[in-house]
Design a protein around this nucleic acid. Structure first.
Lengths: 345, 345
DNA sequence: ATTTAGCAATCTCTTTCGTTAAGTGCTAAT
DNA sequence: ATTAGCACTTAACGAAAGAGATTGCTAAAT
């Protein structure tokens, strides 16, 4: 258990260091703290905090910087979300103010806004019902032996893909296949569909197609694509700002990570409640060792729950970022409710 | 006009410098050149070459490196394409060997292969007929007031987009609109379609839709998207390898450039004949000052002409890269002809 | 029992200086 | 036309020195 004074010091160390990037010494603290004590006293307290593993030195005679545990204590017990700057609120509202024809545009736009506001990298995930189900399937002949397969889920996701077929396929054949899919598979969850696709369907589909493998592949592709949670990313390039002395390799690892949908979904993990902060090596992924991730959920009533997140250096102004995410998710939820109000029956 | 010996020296300077990255001195050259002259003689010749602006020093007593003009002379007069390494040929053939369902997969895969072979960034553009024309248009109702618009061009490009509609729209209305578009616009070039979209169509379409603006916007979007030449990019991250001492700003400029389809299309420019090299500031774009671009066209008979390109540091092994691109475009053309043979009538 | 002043010790950062190695240009001899 | 020889220039490296910041510790003060 920390004393009041120790908390005060830890808070000041975090605040100073996240602002300046320079280790903070006892003298600077003594000068700025509201209580009147000498630097020697601060030094004693700092030694205690170091003993507890909350702060550390970069070399034997340097000032202190927060350790991962120190940041953790700070965000768990000491941080107070900054109120949103009026400018930022304006920026959010005007960027979300326009007319959108698709949810995805709002969500993708949100990633851009967030990355601009923070100058970090932002992720957004649209509100999603748990276990979305297949609600419709189409095959549209495009001429030239091209066909487009379209898949719709009950959460409104649309996934599509065109492919070329070698053999001539008639409209009746296509309709038969579509009917088969819609009869057998609509209403099931996507994993269940994927399951049946390998068991029941192949036998049945041979009634209509001579060589169904191509079709099954395509359908499987589109299906797995639809089953993946889809993230939008804003401000990719901002990661360049924090690369330590051009450490190209770790930068490449980082970019590979955020570009692989599966991997980054893993990192963001299950929607935690509210706002959650993950710091440095608290994340198991090695590429994120020197970064922190702040995630926040947002609720759109019966339309499900989505997520927004920002990824920046461990040394980031947490109070500002937490305040920002908190405010942003409310604006976003509002906007989405508004959107649904227009388009729902 | 350069003497034989001067050419020999220039060639050696380029070869050495692109290999080692270190300025080349007279002594090293004297040792490696096939003719037997002293370093002092080489120095005299080098002074002459410098006078001509083909090579330059990095500081007053350094060895020489090629200037942009020197590289230019080299690729125009001295370079001899390296024959393809057997390994590379294997790699190309096995990567292109599989079965593909879409041309775009072949082209996109090609970008990846090229970037792997070169460890630079690669661009590929699919074979395209000049002035492709609108060949089909569909509106597919997806339920939930979602509609997908699909546009097909006579070169086989498919572009699509879903959108949500506020008012209820009946199947008959959609069919009427589709019929209108297909009657009035199919067969025209895309710019012509875009033109008519703003003049003739709005008046006619109000027969079928109360508020056609949303639809017109979407159609316009899809159209402009289809009219853009679409590039595939491979090995984006390879650009990180050459960033001078973490010059974040120019790196950002570079990435913004290659991610904007319009801009990069501008840079690649009109398909030149054969294989073309653009060096450093020969390209007007400032972000490319320290890079070189090698482009090559490939022909797929009546199916049009496409382009492949690689972007790497000015100091790149041109002979190897030119040989590589030359071989690759032949393999790619072969593969595409093969592909069309299966899918054409 | 705390707190503080004082101080030696430690470490980084920057500057300076000398050394080495590579390379050039020029001159005079071949 | 070529070459040997040499003075000169510069980058790169490392050692040395000094400035500045900060710590831990000790002993005195509160």
């Amino acid at each position: 258990m920390l004393s009041e004074r120790q908390m005060m010091i830890l808070r000041a160390v975090v605040r100073d260091f996240t602002n300046s990037g320079v280790p903070v010494g006892s003298k600077a603290l003594a000068k700025q703290l509201p209580i009147h004590v000498s630097s020697a006293t601060i030094r004693n307290e700092m030694a205690a905090l170091e003993e507890l593993g909350l702060i550390r030195k970069t070399h034997s005679s340097s000032g202190r910087i927060p350790s991962v545990e120190g940041y953790r204590y700070y965000v768990d017990h000491l941080v107070k979300p900054d109120p949103l700057r009026p400018n930022d609120l304006n920026m959010i509202q005007s960027s979300l103010g326009g007319d959108f024809h698709k949810i995805d545009e709002i969500i993708s736009q949100s990633a851009t806004i967030l990355s601009n506001l923070t100058s970090y990298t932002a992720f957004t995930l649209k509100p999603e019902l748990k276990d979305s189900r297949l609600s419709g399937f189409r095959l549209v002949p495009l001429g030239h032996r091209q066909i487009m397969a379209i898949l719709v889920t009950d959460s409104g996701d649309v996934e599509n893909q065109t492919f070329d077929v070698t053999e001539a396929v008639t409209g009746e054949q296509l309709e038969a296949v579509v009917r088969l899919i819609n009869d057998q598979l609509v209403g099931l969850t996507l994993p269940a569909v994927l399951q049946k696709l390998q068991t029941d369907i192949p036998a049945k589909i041979t009634h209509y197609l001579q060589s169904p493998q191509g079709f099954l592949d395509i359908f499987g592709d589109v299906l797995t694509r639809a089953a993946q949670e889809r993230f939008y990313v804003g401000g990719r390039l901002n990661l360049l700002n924090f690369s330590q002395d051009s450490d190209v390799d770790s930068l490449k690892a980082l970019y590979s990570l955020i570009d692989k949908t599966d991997d980054i979904a893993d990192v963001l993990g299950q929607p935690r409640d509210n706002i959650s902060v993950q710091i440095g090596n608290e994340m198991t992924n090695d590429a994120l060792r020197y970064y922190s991730l702040i995630t926040a959920t947002y609720d759109v009533n019966q339309h499900g729950r989505g997520m927004i997140a920002i990824l920046g250096p461990t040394r980031m102004p947490y109070s500002r970022m937490i305040g920002l995410l908190g405010a942003f998710r409310e604006e976003l939820a509002k906007k989405l409710l508004d959107y649904y109000r227009h388009y729902d029956e």
